[in-house]
């Protein structure tokens, strides 16, 4: 387990699905997948919004770890800044 949790920044459209959820919260894990697991423990149902079958990140979602685009296997260093950002899509 990494020392110090990651700091996860979530988009408005995601936290709006979970009344009371914060835009910024701490989560533990050594990969993006583990961080998402910890987020799901704190906010039940969050994993289903982020992951599709595979599992894989949903097509129109991006996760950045310390500013670099990541996938589920990407390592998350201690106290890393993790941003979840919806792709610019829709109509």
């Amino acid at each position: 387990m990494a020392e110090g949790p990651a700091v996860v920044h979530m988009p408005r459209s995601l936290v709006a699905l979970f009344p009371g959820a914060p835009r910024r919260l701490e989560a533990r894990g050594i990969t993006v997948a583990e961080v998402i697991d910890d987020l799901d423990r704190q906010i039940p149902g969050l994993r289903n919004r982020l992951l599709d079958v595979g599992p894989a990140l949903r097509t129109h979602l991006n996760v950045f770890v310390a500013g670099v685009r990541a996938d589920l296997d990407t390592p998350v260093p201690p106290r890393a800044e993790v941003h979840i950002i919806p792709a610019v899509s829709g109509g």
Binding site: S13, P19, N48, D52, R58, H60, L61, A87, S89, G90
Partner: peptide, 17 residues
């Protein structure tokens, strides 16, 4: 949702929450 996938929504207060 185009970003967050499919789901079933439920409201028990006539659509308020």
């Amino acid at each position: 949702s185009p970003w967050y996938g499919p789901a079933v929504w439920r409201s028990d207060d006539a659509g308020a929450t």
